[in-house]
Structures are given as C-alpha cells and as structure tokens.
C-alpha cells in the first residue's frame, strides 16, 4: 500500500498554476497525478482547475490533456480511453477531473451513461460544494443552509434551502466496479483509494472533499482542518463501494463538533440553532442508511 513517503518527487502537476492560496483541488490533483504517473491522459471540463492550470500557452499538467466542454467529461474520457486502446496504448490511464457542478448537475447525464456502459476510466469529482469558477453559485452538491451568491442570506430566506445531493449513492446505483469518497485529511485512505482506482478496470468513481477557502469564506490555512472536521462530524463519510459491497473506511470519533465545523466557515455564519439541528438530522439520517446497508450485508453474508 502506497503511503506519503512513497510518492515520487517529480511533479506531474507543476507549480506556477494560479489556484487561490490553500486550494484543496490543487493539492488533491497534485498528489493524484503522482499516483497515476506519466502514462496518464487528463480530461478537464470547464472548471476552476482548467482555468488555473491550463491558461494558454501555459499549462501545469506534464501529461497530455484535453478540454472540450462542461457537461461531457465522462463520455469524452471514455472515448479517449477507447481510442488509446485501439492504438495499442492499453497501459494509459484516462482520468476526468470534474467539479461538483460538472458532476452532480450539468454532467450527470454523461456520467450516468458512461457508468452504465462501464467505460474504462477514472472519474474524479473534486467536490468543493459550489460553482466556484463562475464565482460561488450553488450546485446540487452545496450543503443545506450554505451561503452562495445564488443562495444569499436574505431577510426571508437564508442560504440554500435543500440538502447536498448524494452522488456516491447515485454511482452505487450504477453498480460501478469501484466508487469511493475520500478526504485529503486522511492521506493513507485517500492514497489507497487513488491506487485502487488506478489498478482496477472499468468505471471508477472518486468523490474527493476539496476545501475552497475563497468560496467558503474560510482561512486558507484551514483547508486540511476543514477536510478533517467534515469527516469527524460525519457530514462527509469516507466510503468505498467495491464488488457490490459498501465499506465504511472511518467511523467519526467525535473529535470535532458540527458547530465547530460550521463556525470556521463564513458560508455558515448566519446559521440559527434550528439550521444546525436540521443538518444534524440529515447527518443522522444518512448514517442510519449507511448502517442499514452494513447490517444488511452482514446478515446476508452470514446466511450464506
């Protein structure tokens, strides 16, 4: 199993990119590229990552990359992989690096199609919970109550009125060979998942929690702290779906409270106790579902 020390020194995603200081996407992609290695082709939809890493004629990726549009990451990556195989380049990884809007919203149709066809790609959803590239608008992946520029804190309505869309569950419904959520605050777990995704065949999905200090109105040095808190509070569970079975990779130990997590971020500053309660209810509901699946799996395998 790969750990931090084993990562190569060479940066396939180079310095000089123009991501905001403390960008969670940049640090995740940088390490992902180290695991995937040189024999990789990257597809980028329209997102922050494209703009801060591929501003013509400069480019942070040392490997080939293609950008076409916003909503077609999964199908474009799948086509690249098929074309490479046809050219005898079987060994090349193809990875799509899409944001949460490009995945949960506008890219969902292509994502679902590619997952159903089991396209042989790694699809990474870098989840910073809003459309950051266009200036912090709400996406389907924005959490309940969060301020964004399209869910402002108004006199009548404060923040987003809906909960975050569960894309992991949607991918499980597609029965893909591999799907996982990961947080950079848990490096061993994240690297293990990168490696698994690299070595498996078929459609592989990763949802990575990527802090956006700018969009979340949080201090840039708190990028990893927030990624840790999100897991510890249970708001972002670390999960893995493999061979039709769900595994919980980490059980929150309550090192942080939800209130602490919300407090660091300006996007939750307006939260009332009722809003905090609503988030808690949602977390409990999701964990109930996770435990139900876990228990069910135990019963079934025990009965065999």
């Amino acid at each position: 199993m790969i750990n931090i020390k084993d990562l190569p020194d060479e940066e396939l995603f180079t310095a000089g990119h123009t991501a905001c200081p403390g960008c969670g996407v940049a640090l995740v992609v940088r390490n992902l590229m180290k695991v995937l290695g040189k024999d990789t082709v990257v597809y980028l939809p329209a997102n922050c990552l494209l703009v801060f890493s591929a501003t013509y004629p400069l480019d942070a990726f040392k490997v080939p990359y293609l950008h076409l549009l916003f909503e077609n990451s999964a199908v474009a990556a799948g086509a690249i992989r098929r074309a490479l195989k046809r050219l005898g380049k079987e060994h090349v990884n193809v990875v799509a690096l899409a944001g949460d809007g490009g995945t949960a919203d506008i890219g969902m149709q292509a994502l679902s199609g590619a997952a159903e066809r089991n396209e042989d790609i790694i699809y990474v959803m870098v989840d910073n919970e809003a459309y950051m590239n266009t200036g912090i608008q709400r996406s389907g992946s924005t959490p309940f109550g969060a301020w964004t520029t399209t869910t402002p804190v108004g006199k009548k309505i404060m923040g987003k009125t809906e909960h975050k869309k569960d894309v992991m569950k949607i991918m499980m419904a597609h029965d893909v060979p591999y799907a996982a959520t990961a947080s950079p605050a848990f490096p061993a777990d994240m690297l293990k998942k990168f490696e698994k995704a690299k070595n498996k065949e078929g459609f592989r999905f990763l949802q990575i929690y990527t802090t956006c200090p700018t969009g979340w109105r949080a201090p840039s040095e708190k990028t990893i702290t927030l990624a840790k808190m999100a897991v510890e509070t249970g708001i972002f569970p670390l999960l893995e779906y493999e061979n039709g079975l769900l595994t919980v990779n980490y059980r929150p130990k309550g090192k942080y409270t939800l209130e602490e997590y919300l407090k660091i971020q300006g996007r939750f500053r307006h939260f009332t106790p009722e809003m905090v309660e609503e988030v808690k209810r949602w977390i409990d509901m999701r964990w109930k579902w996770i435990r139900t699946i876990e228990e069910g799996q135990k019963v079934v395998s025990g009965g065999e």
């Binding site: 076409l68 199908v75 474009a76 086509a79 074309a83 149709q109 199609g113 066809r117």
Partner: peptide, 26 residues
C-alpha cells in the same frame, strides 16, 4: 471499430471529438 451507443447526441459528438483528438478516424 469501437462503437459507443451513447445517451445523447451531445455525448455522441463529444465522444467522436475526443476520440479523433486521441488520434483515431471517427
């Protein structure tokens, strides 16, 4: 040939553009 029966025309054109960019006749 690889023949992908995609989920929309938007995806059809996206796929052939990506495949052609990779270097195959599409």
């Amino acid at each position: 040939a690889d023949y992908v029966r995609v989920e929309s025309e938007h995806s059809a054109m996206s796929a052939v553009v990506a495949a052609e960019a990779t270097g195959v006749r599409s």
